[in-house]
């Protein structure tokens, strides 16, 4: 019995020391991690609809459960919507720019875990990714991939990713329309 107690104590001690060290590292890094995430979001916003500032507006969250935030551009160019929805592998977080005529001005994927080489092309900075995302510029709320009767060409081998990105773009535009 004594031995078990001793072993438990040692294991506990090792865990406590490790957790303590991790606490210190976390203390040092968490501000920078927050800052990095903020920069990434900011960059995505600027890429879809440039503005000197963004202010959050309230919207009907019950009607649009996948929409996280709607930001109004302070320069009056329109709105930037952040939305999180499920793609082919996991959830995708994306910024969608919407102008005052309820047309998409661009999309930018902030976070995803799609298949590398297939769905991940939707977010990549390669020529393929840039061209694919460019198709969304000027799209309206009925945006869809060609297979579903729309105009967006799906990425090869990534129908599910393409379809959910198109659907989420449509939802984002509708959410902005609901603001009136």
């Amino acid at each position: 019995m004594n031995k078990i107690l001793k072993l438990t104590l040692i294991l506990f001690l090792v865990c406590a020391i490790t957790a303590g060290i991790l606490g210190v590292v976390n203390e040092v890094t968490y501000q920078r991690i927050d800052e990095q995430n903020r920069i990434k979001t900011e960059r995505a916003y600027q890429a879809v609809l440039a503005s000197d500032g963004y202010e959050e507006v309230s919207f009907d969250q019950a009607a649009f459960p996948t929409v996280d935030l709607i930001n109004r551009c302070t320069n009056g160019a329109g709105y930037v919507v952040t939305t999180t929805f499920s793609g082919a592998q996991g959830s995708i977080t994306m910024a969608v720019g919407v102008d005052n005529d309820y047309k998409c001005t661009g999309i930018s994927i902030i976070k995803h875990s799609e298949t590398s080489g297939l769905g991940a092309n939707a977010a990549s900075s390669s020529e393929k990714g840039v061209n694919w995302r460019a198709q969304f510029v000027g799209a309206d709320e009925n945006v869809a991939i060609t297979k579903m009767g729309g105009t967006i060409d799906a990425l090869a081998g990534a129908t599910i990713t393409s379809r959910s990105v198109a659907a989420a773009t449509g939802t984002a535009i509708r959410a902005v329309e609901s603001l009136g």
Binding site: A88, T115, L118, M148, G157, A158, T159, I160, R163
Partner: peptide, 11 residues
């Protein structure tokens, strides 16, 4: 298994 990747669920 890649053949499943185009599968549509309740699309």
């Amino acid at each position: 298994f890649m053949g499943f990747s185009g599968m549509q669920i309740f699309g």
